[in-house]
Amino acid sequence: MARLTEENVRLAQEIISRYPRPRSATIPLLHLAQEQDGYVTEDAMAHIGELVGASSAEVYGTASFYEMFKFHPVGKYVINICGTMSCALMGAEELMHHAEQKLGVKMGGTTADGLITVERAECQAACTEAPCLQTNYRYSFRVTPESFDALVDDLRAGRLNDEIPAHGVVARVRQHIPADKGAGVHAPEDVKAAPAWFDGKAAL
């Protein structure tokens, strides 16, 4: 049960500083926490509450609304198999059945070695490439039983370590706004007038 590390608190402060209201950073900070521990711990939620000025209950209320946040340890790799219409039409049910066989766990379960958690997921915006799945939010398209087995074998053999970071890490690139480049962030109540450049004249 870990609060955010010093390094992550620094990142958190940077993220918070981009918003007119600290609370807007709640979801990004929850991702940061999940990146740190693989799932969102209670201490982290309490810590985030302190950082954004919300009660722990409010942070938990927000966090538990969203699918991606886990509140207990999950596999290093979370495989989400899409089961919505386009994929269903192209055999998602069968793929899920096969996955359960291959991994020896039911949907929502984690393999004994703690490496893989497999879940039924909803539409992943890859409907033309059905059936599809995501491994820690990295896609596999037009998945067949064979390609699924190959994926699992690659994961087990660690052949995908470079492509697919451990669960919790989503984007590996962070936005960074250099202090001298930013236009500046203001709380709405501190802004009384139109932006200076919005003066009816051409900007260039």
């Binding site: 919300a54 009660s55 209950a57 409010e58 938990y60 209320g61 538990s64 609304f65 969203y66």
Partner: peptide
């Protein structure tokens, strides 16, 4: 005292 909240979905 926002100590209770909706949770889940």
């Amino acid at each position: 005292d926002p100590l209770i909240s909706f949770t889940q979905r």
